[in-house]
Design a protein around this nucleic acid. Structure first.
Lengths: 347, 347
DNA sequence: TTGAAAGCGCTAACAT
DNA sequence: ATGTTAGCGCTTTCAA
């Protein structure tokens, strides 16, 4: 591995000039720049990130902290972030908190503090004040996906509004007997997302003047299997719902499968709607409210980059937004497929 | 952020002693060690990985290169590796090659060469000679999951044997009209895995003296949807197979769903077997040959650690194995669930 | 525009 | 067992 000295010798300049030519941040004559670039290319020179990082305080590396890796939302968001980072010359270092409380502590109190990362993206993590302050104390920019998080810039969909929109889709079709499968206690750690989605469901019912029926609100664990179990319980009731709103597509797919197992047709006998636009949603003909995790990952990177490498004209107005809010709402979209229709016996 | 100097002053020792006490690699008296540890703790000192890395040449970071992130196998393998690395104080930096040829080149010719990683784990990647030599030229230890890869230590299941075992399970149940859904051209890049699994299928048929029927061998893209499509084509034939062996569980699940859609019962009308033990396999009652990607990730880390931080007694005999082979076979296990049974009309 | 030289924060000889 | 000191490979003043 050639070092900067070899490149400097080959180009007949000083190491300082090589550094300048390669980083492009300082003025170098065009001819020297060409010679340096050629020398570096010939030698296969790649800057040592440690040495460069030590000298500049920048690592060109971003940490991404997640609660799980094996769920569609997380891996897709990471993919979006990874692509955006790669194109800007940044690495992505992954911290999976799935391991439990001890691992979580060591990530925040040790791993993230050793100056390996320039910034941190936290996905669907309700960070404690202590965790946030550890990072901010190091001047490590932080952005959250899913939120809001006090004092932290976050991107997220409006869970209450999304749930309300999903429910209203069912109401508009004429359904009056609606069930909801929300998240259980265990999944509540992600920003009360289950609660927020239930709040949206309730709000839509209220607005439509429909009485709440506690028997029609159940919880599951955000998996297909959990959705199947919960839906089975709902659908065997004599007075079963004509439509089910599941708080995630995976649960909604479980609902569709449960309905089939019970000999019910979707959407003729029961309508189903989810949230996500999971990769399997189209296959199951699932009507859903799409969110775009890859895009969310990419935008988180853009926000961080505006801070890490400020340009004259910031490419977009994120950062501390004009309205003083740290929170940026994300787009969602109702995608109507074949799992929703008017209720049976409707005109 | 306090530096090593602050810790040294607080403990009343030199920075060298602090370094020694904290790394534990050199002899420090017990009392000074305590004082140093206390000082470091009080100050919230965390070593700078850049400075340490520059001085030692070690980064305590491992690169993991993958072709996709959003498939069960990859994210699970990464999770296994991540946990193992975290417990040894290592970070995991992720390189997702999904972006195309240019991204792939920049990963191998730039990102992996800037001395940010001590070692590389390549998952299901058929590395080119040039890619391998780039890494080996830097003395970067490399281990592959899935393989074999010439000149590289690899872990992998024996795809031929696994496919043969799956097929034999169907044969033993009495099936004679077997179909196979293999991988298509696009997925062939992963070590000819589709071809190897088909070879195993053919071998089992040969051994049983069953004639090959090209109409019963089709391909798909390793997704549920692809499996569904391929299975539908197989099952609408008048002379349909009594059993289908899919080269992956996701495709096998597609088969089960296709059978249901066609009004066929599994396993009464058609048996289905897959490979993986995907997280959804149990839910669908899928008989499969399990492989254990999390364990594979963990073992890849162990192999690397034995090289990076050799101990007196290597914890296990990996490395250059006794038989001189660089390749370590991985365990698999037949898991019989409810998707396989004797063929219809059998005694 | 370019070069000389002083660090960046830590580790590893080499002394003691 | 501990301190002194010379780097690790690069960036960035400061001067020219």
């Amino acid at each position: 591995m050639p070092g900067i000295i070899e490149v400097a010798m080959r180009a007949g300049v000083s190491t300082a000039t090589v550094s300048r030519a390669l980083s492009g941040k300082s003025s170098v004559s065009d001819t020297t720049r060409q010679r340096v670039l050629a020398a570096a290319r010939d030698l296969g020179y790649v800057v040592s990130s440690n040495a460069s990082g030590l000298a500049t305080g920048r690592t060109k590396n971003v940490g991404v902290v997640i609660p799980f890796l094996t769920r569609w939302f997380y891996s897709t968001a990471i993919e979006g972030a990874e692509t955006a980072l790669l194109h800007r010359g940044y690495d992505l270092t992954l911290y999976n908190l799935g391991g439990g409380a001890d691992d979580r502590r060591s990530v925040f109190e040790h791993f993230l503090l050793r100056k390996r990362v320039d910034a941190v993206i936290a996905i669907s993590l309700e960070l404690t004040a202590s965790e946030v302050s550890h990072l901010l104390a190091m001047n490590t920019p932080l952005v959250g996906i899913g939120g809001p998080l006090p004092g932290v810039r976050t991107l997220s969909i409006d869970d209450v509004a999304v749930a309300r929109q999903a429910t209203e889709h069912l109401l508009q079709l004429g359904h009056r007997r609606l069930a909801h499968i929300g998240g259980d206690q265990a999944s509540e750690r992600d920003f009360h997302l289950p609660t927020n989605r239930r709040v949206g469901f309730d709000a839509a019912l209220d607005a439509a003047g429909i009485q709440h029926n506690p028997d029609l609100v159940v919880t599951a664990d955000f998996t297909i299997e959990g959705g199947h179990r919960a839906a089975t319980a709902l659908l065997v009731q004599s007075d079963r719902p004509t439509a089910i709103f599941a708080a995630s597509d995976e649960m909604a797919i479980g609902v569709i499968l449960a309905a089939r197992d019970l000999g019910l047709r979707v959407p003729e006998d029961v309508s189903v709607i989810g949230i996500d636009d999971h990769e399997l949603a189209a296959f199951f003909g699932l009507t859903t409210i799409a969110q775009y995790p890859a895009e969310q990952g990419r935008r988180a990177v853009e926000i961080l980059m505006d801070e890490l490498e400020p340009r004259e004209a910031p490419s977009h107005g994120y950062g501390t937004t004009g309205n003083g809010s740290l929170h940026l709402p994300l787009r969602v979209e109702l995608i109507v497929r074949s799992s929703t229709a008017p209720p049976p016996n409707s005109p």
